[in-house]
């Protein structure tokens, strides 16, 4: 068991999202931790991959005061025709420039939170959790990379009577999972690709280890009070994971191995709202010009998933789809 006093724990938090409606049942507060064990090509949150704080510049907020230039001790910053350039090789993410930036154009992604402070912060919405069977989701990045903090955090929430969810990509040590799971009311588990070679290519991670962890979760659910619930999530990425054989084989795997120890399988359609994030981090993104999935493509994948041997009632899809020509009433439009 954990011996250290809770107060000493801290974690690098990327974002605290309140009234989240997409990370588990009910109304939730989702805490995104920084640092991930996978490097998915399509990653929607590229700023969550690195475990250390990073600086970004949001151009349309900048008022051009150049306060930042004089303040950076490492001289990482310079203005060019595209705006502010951050020398990534030199920037240590110290946050001094972001602290000084009057317009918050410069942002430090990743903030150190003490355990007690974080508990107090997320408990503010307990009334909404209680009314909705919601709670707190710990996500990332990969939260299981900070197992001691996450364990203490979920434990603290449980003591306050708040339901908890662990959102994991599955690539972590089994011992970390074993430590966290007893305090997680539910698990959101990402299973993105079932072909081991492709999985390695797309995510840089070992599928076998992920599947072994999934079985560990299954066994824990079957033999323990907690967790109670397991949702599987599969991102549908155009030209990548959106193959019918991938979905069919994931479905078969789930049917063969999880049986009724699974409560939902959600196909999450590709989203391109993160395009700007890549630009701001100075990164290339293979999917920059990819279209969103169409509604009919998602429906087709849904029926493949439903006929893969799994209880079809457990499968659903979510997310935004391509805006297509409206034929009906002109006062009608797609809201994403």
């Amino acid at each position: 068991m954990i011996e250290l006093t809770a107060k000493k724990y801290s974690a690098t938090v990327l974002e605290i999202q309140r009234m989240s409606t997409e990370d588990g049942p009910g109304l939730r507060t989702t805490v995104f931790l920084k640092g991930c064990s996978l490097k998915c090509k399509w990653c929607h949150n590229p700023e969550s991959i690195s475990g250390t704080p990073q600086t970004q510049w949001v151009g349309n907020r900048c008022i051009g005061c150049k306060t930042c230039l004089g303040i950076c001790v490492n001289r990482c910053l310079s203005f060019n025709e595209n705006g502010l350039d951050i020398n990534r090789a030199k920037c240590r993410g110290c946050g001094t420039c972001a602290e000084a930036c009057p317009s918050t154009a410069l942002e430090l992604m990743g903030e150190e939170w003490m355990l007690d402070d974080l508990l107090r912060e997320v408990a503010k919405d307990k009334a909404y959790f209680d009314k909705s069977m919601g709670g707190v989701t710990i996500s990332g990045g990969e939260p299981a990379l900070q197992p001691k903090f996450v364990t203490e955090f979920l434990k603290g929430l449980k003591e306050m009577g708040i339901q908890t969810a662990l959102d994991t990509c599955g690539l972590c040590s089994a011992s970390s999972l074993e430590m966290i799971l007893p305090y997680a009311t539910m698990v959101l588990f990402d299973l993105k690709e079932i072909d081991p070679v492709k999985h390695q290519e797309f995510t840089g991670g070992d599928l076998d280890k992920i599947l072994r962890n999934l079985l560990l979760i299954r066994d824990t659910i079957r033999s323990h009070v907690h967790p109670k619930t397991l949702w599987i999530r599969t991102p549908i990425i155009p030209g990548t994971t959106d193959r019918h054989d991938n979905i069919r084989n994931i479905g078969r795997y789930l049917a063969d191995n999880l049986g009724n120890t699974m409560d939902r399988w959600e196909l999450c359609s590709f989203n391109n709202l993160c395009k700007d994030k890549y630009q701001r981090l100075g990164l290339e993104w293979e999917y920059e010009n990819s279209d969103l999935m169409t509604e009919s493509e998602m429906d087709a994948l849904l029926s493949t998933a439903r006929s893969s041997g799994i209880n079809p009632d457990l499968v659903m899809w979510s997310g935004s789809t391509r805006l297509e020509e409206e034929t009906g009433n002109k006062n009608e439009q797609n809201i994403v």
Partner: peptide, 12 residues
């Protein structure tokens, strides 16, 4: 239990 991401907004 199909959830479609795009909601239609109509003028009431």
């Amino acid at each position: 239990m199909v959830s479609t991401g795009a909601a239609k907004l109509r003028i009431k």
